[in-house]
Design a protein around this nucleic acid. Sequence first.
DNA 1: ATACGTGCAAACGTTTTGCACATAC
DNA 2: GTATGTGCAAAACGTTTGCACGTAT
Lengths: 137, 137
Amino acid sequence: MKELKYSRQRESIKDFLMTRKDHPTAEEVYLNVRKTFPNISLGTVYRNLSLLTSIGSIQKISCGDSCERFDASTDSHYHFICRKCGCVMDMDMPDLSFINTLADKSFCGEIEGSVTYFFGLCEKCSQEYVDKPESKR
Amino acid sequence: MKELKYSRQRESIKDFLMTRKDHPTAEEVYLNVRKTFPNISLGTVYRNLSLLTSIGSIQKISCGDSCERFDASTDSHYHFICRKCGCVMDMDMPDLSFINTLADKSFCGEIEGSVTYFFGLCEKCSQEYVDKPESKR
DNA sequence: ATACGTGCAAACGTTTTGCACATAC
DNA sequence: GTATGTGCAAAACGTTTGCACGTAT
């Protein structure tokens, strides 16, 4: 069994993620943590992000984007992805886990869970659509 | 506006996808289409897969896996991913689009749609769990 | 003292792209 | 004839890994 030792870098990565409500990519984490640890390497960031994910301390979000994103809040919640600006936001909405029961009814294996992403236009981007004349969209 | 010209390679890619109910990766498409066009390049496969996706002729499935998968059936349906063998299967289950309405109620932007993936054990893998003694799992 | 973490750089797997040639129209 | 498609190879991209050194315990 592998023992977990403290590291300032790991703490700093986790701390940074906790300050953010958007969902930074590994690169963004790297650029920010570098302000505190100028010599930290991208490899270390990846290693720690994946370690933190595996111990359930953070959550990895795979949203069909080219790269993974990370979220310090690990309680189950839903994400929205804006098709225009690409931002990823938390949704504040009721639990949907009953769809797993629904799925199970017509499925022969074993449903353990599900992931749902919503997409569309975020508040800011949908405002722009309303404000601008069609020609400028 | 870019004009779309016929190509035998593209047709062959689409045809191959239509014969498959699992959801091949670009690599798998490449290996199979190569039986008909031994000189086809992986680049051509990627170019055509992304072109077919953009005209809505096929569907791209991003399931947090390392690579994208492609599906010739473009009507909205749900996918299941086995956490053990990694297979991706279609779900035969009722429409869930009402969750978009549900999401919209507590959201400030504009919900255009959603993607849901179910995960767990497929029929085959869940059978193995039942058959084998715990020590062999 | 020793196991675990780090920085660095090289390697990896997937996908994209620049180019000259081939093909559809 | 011309715009679009292709094959090839190189590059880009995000991510992982091997190694020697550093640090926590």
